Simulated scan of single mutants.
Amino acid sequence: MKIFDADATRAALPFEHLIPALRERFAQGCVVPPRHVHEVPVPGGEPFTSLIMPAWVPGRYYGVKTINIAPGNAARGLPGLHASYLLCDGSTGAPLAVIDGDVLTHRRTAAASALAAQWLAPEDAKHLLVVGAGQIARLLPEAYRCVRGIEQVSLWARDPGKAQALAEALRAQGLPVAAVTDLQAACAAADIVSCATLATEPIVHGAWLRPGTHLDLIGSFTPAMREADDDCFAGASIWVDTEEALQKSGELLEPMGRGVFRHEDVRGTLEMLSRGEVPGRTSAGERTVFKSVGTGLEDLAGAVLMQEP
């Protein structure tokens, strides 16, 4: 059985290979049951939540990711989230690899945004705005540069110090990144706006976006979270990674509840795009929105890529 720690997982999942692997897996499909959610009690302490996300290709591969979320870890000086992934043979159940789930999750999430951008972002997009300064935000410039000719990256975060520190780190890697403090002006100037935050109230406003902008929303994965206001969706072409996004993201549930758009207005999913069942962007002036919540299919695609480089 292979063991991939964080560094090995990172090295085994370059975006130029991971993005096509996601496209192939979305096109071919796999079995993705609903995730299991368990609250694990801690005697004398705060419980933590454990998510169990299985997926398999019948007869070939079976994989399962476990994510443990412990908000109380902040007081201990520990990360609040720990994930691990187990890849097994799909016929015998024999374990094949144990993979660092944090790195796998971060990289497949950024890759999914870049995959969507292949169809939804303007062909001539050169200016990317990243909203956020966390682990996924730091990967977005590299991922997007695999699918578009990005020449300028702006980076905004609630904490200007964190934005500046991340911009400096990315520039040291040779990426054209500059921290900005005026989010409204940055949104108006960007061709692509990609948000990866834990915001619970909208921070990006549709009135700030010009025609033709592609808006990528990563952060809202519960009904209580939002990164974009209702105006971001009004009049836009809306896409999701999977139908699950329409059931669990406050980003979509709230404006749908107010009649800003309907379920049937959503143009399609990554599966439909990858299979060529629907077109993506249809005009230069079309404003597009892509909302993702993640799926076990993406984890499995990454793990199989590591098994079959």
Rank of each mutant, 00 (worst) to 15 (best):
T222G: 01
I218F: 11
T213P: 02
V147F: 14
I218L: 14
R148S: 04
L217Y: 06
A157S: 15
A188L: 05
R158E: 14
Q184R: 10
L128W: 14
G206H: 05
C195R: 01
S154F: 14
P160A: 06
C195S: 12
G219C: 06
L128P: 10
E168V: 03
D159V: 01
P202Q: 13
G134P: 14
I192F: 01
D159T: 13
G219A: 08
D182E: 09
Y144N: 05
L170F: 08
P211E: 14
C146W: 04
G206K: 03
R210P: 02
V130R: 09
V131R: 13
A157R: 11
A178T: 09
T200L: 10
L209D: 11
G212R: 04
A188Q: 07
Q164N: 05
V147D: 03
L166S: 01
C146A: 07
V180R: 01
A190G: 04
L170T: 02
G174M: 13
D182V: 09
H127G: 04
G132Q: 09
L175A: 11
P202S: 13
W208Q: 04
A189C: 08
L217Q: 03
G206I: 04
I150M: 09
P202A: 10
A224Y: 13
A179I: 00
V153G: 03
L183H: 07
G134W: 15
P202I: 11
Q135C: 03
R148Y: 04
R138P: 06
H205T: 07
L175E: 13
G212D: 01
A179L: 00
Q164K: 10
P223T: 00
S194F: 02
L128E: 15
Q173N: 02
D159S: 10
A169E: 15
V204P: 05
W156E: 00
A178W: 09
P160T: 06
P211F: 15
A172K: 07
E168Y: 02
L155T: 07
G174K: 06
K162R: 15
S154I: 09
I203A: 05
G149W: 12
Y144T: 03
L183P: 13
S194H: 04
Q135P: 00
V180S: 00
W156A: 02
A137T: 07
A207L: 06
Q164A: 10
Q173H: 05
A188G: 08
R148P: 10
E151K: 07
P176K: 04
Q184D: 10
A133D: 14
L139C: 03
A163Q: 07
G149S: 15
G206M: 04
P141K: 09
D216M: 01
V130I: 13
D216W: 01
A133Y: 13
G134A: 14
V130N: 06
G134C: 15
I218H: 05
Q164Y: 00
P176N: 03
K162T: 11
E142P: 02
D191C: 08
T181G: 01
V204L: 12
G161Q: 07
I192N: 03
W208I: 02
Q135L: 14
G174R: 01
V177R: 02
